[in-house]
């Protein structure tokens, strides 16, 4: 009797694992097809310029305060931490270099991406999810309007273009935060700090961060739209979609950050 029971358990476990893998693959396939369809509308008229502008302002302008504050405080903390850490082996002079490299290559795009995921990814998922459960997406169909073209493409395009702009601001403010602590608290001369910053900075450091930002903007808006578009089950379903959008965007940002870093900086 024992062996068949044990075999049943193994089979149940395998079946559960298989179902999980199939569901995951189905999800990945669904997102990929959804993204492909949304991108195909970028070059197919009619274009919804007004909706693009609205989404762009929502992402770029209204996310500015939260991204700016995050960048300033990150730059300040980075300067303090690297100063106290590097002091252990008399390398305090590298603070400016560390701050600018960390901000432009890594922390600017990643933190801006995570902030925008919390703000915009959740908002898009909630808005589109509510439209789904109140039949507004079906109404778009009956009004001869492609819902993906109308709701998704302008948002994804806006996110992909807006996040690099936000990261330019985050880079500047992050470096300023480091400079502020460096000159006001750590005793660096202002000119020397800035000279160390710009002498060490390469164009590729900034460009690589902007490429990452565009990728993160795409991910955040895509996942927000996808989770909202596929939501169901009333208010609870919309709540789940909102949570899923933020969690999926955040994890994907960190995973894609590694992949892009490996591609752009591995030797």
């Amino acid at each position: 009797m024992r062996t068949p029971r044990r075999l049943d358990r193994v089979l149940d476990l395998t079946a559960a694992l298989g179902r999980g893998v199939i569901a995951m693959l189905r999800g990945i396939g669904g997102v990929a097809l959804f993204a492909a369809e949304a991108l195909s509308h970028v070059v197919r008229p009619p274009f919804h310029g007004r909706l693009f502008l609205r989404a762009f302002v929502e992402i770029a302008w209204f996310s500015l305060p939260v991204v700016a504050l995050t960048a300033v405080f990150t730059g300040m903390v980075l300067a303090l931490q690297s100063y106290t850490g590097f002091a252990r082996f008399n390398a305090e002079g590298a603070v400016a270099n560390v701050v600018v490299l960390s901000i432009t290559r890594e922390l600017g795009p990643v933190l801006a991406g995570l902030m925008v995921a919390g703000r915009i990814g959740a908002a898009f998922a909630a808005e589109i999810g509510t439209m789904r459960v109140t039949d507004q997406i079906d109404a778009l169909h009956t009004l001869s309007t492609d819902p993906v073209k109308y709701l998704v493409t302008p948002r994804i395009l806006a996110g992909t273009l807006a996040l690099p702009l936000l990261v330019v601001v985050a880079d500047i403010l992050g470096v300023m935060g480091g400079w502020l602590i460096g000159t006001q608290q750590l005793g660096f001369a202002s000119g020397a700090y800035l000279k160390a910053t710009f002498d060490f900075l390469q164009p590729w450091d900034v460009i690589s961060g902007l490429i990452k930002a565009a990728a993160f903007g795409f991910i955040v808006t895509l996942m927000g739209c996808w989770c909202g578009y596929t939501s169901g089950g009333g208010a609870q379903g919309v709540g789940r979609a909102t949570t899923a959008a933020v969690v999926a965007s955040s994890i994907l940002i960190l995973a894609v950050d590694y992949v892009l870093t490996a591609l752009m900086f591995s030797r």
Binding site: M131, T134, D135, Q136, D138, A139, H141, T142, L143, S144
Partner: peptide
């Protein structure tokens, strides 16, 4: 669809 109109149960207004 251009020739079809639809009134949804809850209105489904945008």
């Amino acid at each position: 669809n251009d020739r079809i109109g639809m009134l949804f149960q809850n209105g489904a207004l945008f």
